[in-house]
Design a protein around this nucleic acid. Structure first.
Length: 310
DNA sequence: ATATTATGCAAAT
DNA sequence: TTTGCCTAATATT
């Protein structure tokens, strides 16, 4: 269940362990057989992320486009060199499903695994697929399995450009002009800012946790219409989103309660102290003591502090 | 052990 | 507006 920070970590992981290598691509589950055939035996040039979209670009102009949706997940495994190159390391991170197989080390060096004899694999090979593996990538040193994704497609550069064209700026890129573009897209809509932050065409990568936490940190009432915000407030929302999500990329989990923002706590180190308002409805606000509220808005649960955010 | 829930989105209705 | 995705952490029995 990833927000943008997880996808950027995954892009970095694919870049680190697979870029520059020819990959075997298959669909053990069978639902992506045709797409896998289009990508099989080609070199991965680069892996990139924009918001929650992941793109793996291959050497013949075809891309693998993946969106994990609510419960999609990648898992990885491989030999020692593969592990050494991985930026997603064991033990697995709390709150994310970027799992790194503990079995991989055992598989390596056993000699006669299921994948032995494959033209590319030089290690014992990936394990038998467990569950519904939509797509499996295999290099000489490791493998990656995708399960449960909403989107998994082999697309052209033009189709990838079309996907990107529907998205707002990504705080994790924070490119020149992105901040101003975010402000423009926020202020021209009458929709509640709590909904706009979840709108991927306004800003790409924010999910339900960052939505709630960033609005709390900036003391913005989620029901304020975008058009009622001033540019300064909107700009500071962008800046804090950049900061919070960058922390998420670094930590591999969402912790929005650093000690600098919360003198009474332990910097989110303890379970249950990682957030200010997310899933804390009915409990006292960590900042003002008011009871944290929750409401369903746009089919998702919105959490906020009525005392701080008005 | 079993049930519920969810960091999301698109397709179907 | 509802369903599918078919995972995996958390809650409940």
């Amino acid at each position: 269940m990833p927000e943008g920070h997880s996808i950027h970590r995954l892009a970095r992981q694919f870049q680190d362990v697979f870029a520059g290598q020819v990959l075997e691509v298959s669909s053990p589950q069978g639902r992506f057989t045709a797409g896998a055939a289009l990508l099989d035996c080609h070199e991965l040039l680069e892996a990139t992320a924009h918001g929650k979209q992941l793109f793996l670009r291959f050497d013949h102009g075809v891309l693998l486009h993946v969106h994990l949706g609510l419960y999609g997940a990648w898992s990885f495994g491989g030999d020692e060199s593969f592990r050494g190159a991985s930026s997603i390391g064991a033990p697995r991170r709390i709150g994310e499903r970027e799992t790194f197989s503990q079995e991989a080390e055992q598989d390596a060096g056993l000699g006669a695994g299921p994948g032995a004899g494959s033209p590319i694999s030089s290690y014992a090979g990936p394990p038998e697929p467990v569950g519904a593996v939509r797509v499996r990538l295999v290099s000489a040193n490791g493998w990656a399995d995708l399960r449960g994704a909403t989107t998994c497609a082999a697309i052209t550069e033009a189709e990838a450009a079309a996907v990107l064209g529907l998205l707002g700026p990504d705080p994790l890129h924070n490119r020149p002009g992105d901040r101003e573009e975010f402000i423009r897209r926020l202020l021209r809509r009458k929709t509640a800012v709590g909904l706009l932050l979840m709108d991927q065409s306004v800003v790409a990568g924010i999910g339900n946790i960052y939505r709630a936490e960033v609005l709390f940190r900036r003391r913005v009432d989620p029901w304020t219409p975008g058009s009622s915000l001033n540019a300064e407030t909107a700009g500071r929302l962008w800046d804090d989103t950049v900061a919070a999500m960058s922390d998420g990329v670094r930590d591999g989990r969402i912790v929005t309660t650093p000690s600098a923002l919360w003198s009474g706590g332990t910097a989110g180190a303890l379970d249950g102290e990682a957030h200010f308002v997310y899933k804390r409805q009915g409990q006292p606000c960590r900042r003002c003591g008011e009871v944290v509220g929750m409401a369903e808005i746009g089919a998702r649960k919105l959490y906020w502090c009525p005392g701080c955010q008005n």
